[in-house]
């Protein structure tokens, strides 16, 4: 333990130890570098099926959007007057796609897809964006290796950004 101010305080002895099994079940966040991605893999091919069965109703044919966000296209538009922000044009890290789909999609049944199907539908969305080929099969390593088009598009907060009076 390090010298944070908090360390100096009294402890209260409240709470139970979290077991490794308990943590494993809940520890679903994936780092931008792909850390914590689970075993398994999925193909664009399989992803197309998953998407057509579970996603198309909200995200439209080819992920062009519906009551759910548009997922495809928009590359090259970010500096234009009508920027289109999608997984393909805007998202900096591919592992976030796995993370988000697993935790939140399909919106009507989150956390219902197998890890394989999450890999697969992630691969399909990336392929629709031209980021992986149509025959791609993604797993932890290959998903983490993807360099998203807009990876370097983010800057830190420079505010206040207007003059003080």
């Amino acid at each position: 333990a390090v010298g944070f101010a908090a360390q100096a305080e009294e402890r209260y002895g409240i709470g139970q130890p979290a077991t490794q099994a308990e943590i494993a079940g809940w520890n679903i966040d994936i780092g931008r570098d792909g850390s914590n991605l689970p075993p398994g893999s999925g193909s664009v091919e399989r992803g197309r099926v998953v998407f057509s069965e579970q996603c198309v109703a909200c995200h439209g044919d080819n992920g062009q959007g519906g009551i759910g966000d548009r997922l495809v296209g928009g590359q090259g538009t970010l500096a234009s007057a009508k920027p289109i922000r999608t997984v393909g044009s805007y998202w900096p890290y591919a592992p976030t796609l796995f993370d988000y789909i697993r935790r939140a999609m399909p919106q009507n049944a989150p956390q219902s897809l197998s890890n394989e199907d999450v890999y697969a539908v992630s691969a399909y969305i990336l392929s629709l964006n031209g980021i992986v080929p149509q025959d791609a099969v993604l797993d932890a390593k290959s998903l983490a290796a993807i360099k998203m088009p807009n990876r370097d598009g983010f800057v830190s907060d420079p505010r206040p950004d207007v003059h003080d009076h």
Partner: peptide, 10 residues
């Protein structure tokens, strides 16, 4: 934990 609470599944 480790189960996913029902209120996260729908």
């Amino acid at each position: 934990p480790p189960n996913v609470p029902e209120w996260m599944k729908a």
